Computed example of a mutant assay.
Amino acid sequence: MIFSEFFKDAILDYIYFIEKDYSEKSVLKIICDRYGLSGVERTILFRGITKKYIANKRKQKIANINDLKNQTIFIDGYNVLITIASYLEGNFTFVGNDGVLRDVCESHGIIRNEDLLLKALFLIFDYLDKNKIKETYIYLDKPVSFSGILSQRINKYFNEEKINGFCETVHSPDYNLKNLTDGICSTSDSTIIDKTNTKIFDIPKNLLEFYYSPQFFSIERFINPNFDLIK
Rank of each mutant, 00 (worst) to 15 (best):
L123S: 02
K132I: 13
K119L: 09
I133F: 04
F122N: 08
K119N: 13
D126H: 14
K130C: 10
D126I: 12
Y139V: 04
L117Q: 05
E135C: 06
S147N: 08
F146K: 09
L140C: 07
D126G: 09
S147A: 10
L140N: 00
E135P: 02
K130G: 06
T136F: 04
F122E: 14
Y139M: 11
I138R: 03
I124R: 01
I133C: 06
F146T: 12
Y127T: 07
Q152C: 07
K134M: 10
Y137I: 14
T136W: 00
L123M: 14
L150I: 06
K132V: 08
S145D: 14
F146G: 05
K132R: 13
Y137T: 09
P143E: 10
S147G: 13
D141S: 08
L121S: 05
S151I: 00
D126Q: 12
Y127G: 03
I124H: 00
S151P: 02
L128C: 06
T136P: 05
I149T: 12
I133A: 06
S147H: 05
F122M: 08
L150Q: 01
L121V: 11
D129S: 12
Y127K: 04
A120W: 05
N131A: 04
Y139A: 03
L140H: 02
R153T: 00
I149K: 15
F122C: 07
E135N: 15
L140T: 01
Q152E: 12
L128F: 03
L128M: 03
S145Y: 12
F125K: 07
F125T: 03
I124S: 01
R153K: 15
L117G: 04
F125A: 06
K134E: 12
Y137V: 11
Q152P: 04
L121P: 00
G148D: 13
G148V: 10
Q152T: 12
E135T: 13
D141W: 01
I138L: 15
F122G: 07
L128G: 01
Y139N: 05
K134H: 10
D129I: 13
I138H: 03
N131M: 08
D129P: 00
L128V: 03
L128W: 01
D129A: 14
Q152S: 13
F122A: 01
F125S: 01
A120T: 06
Y139T: 04
G148R: 14
D141N: 10
T136K: 08
L140M: 12
P143R: 10
Q152N: 14
K119W: 01
K119T: 09
Y139K: 04
N131T: 07
A120I: 07
A120F: 10
L117E: 03
D129C: 11
K134A: 14
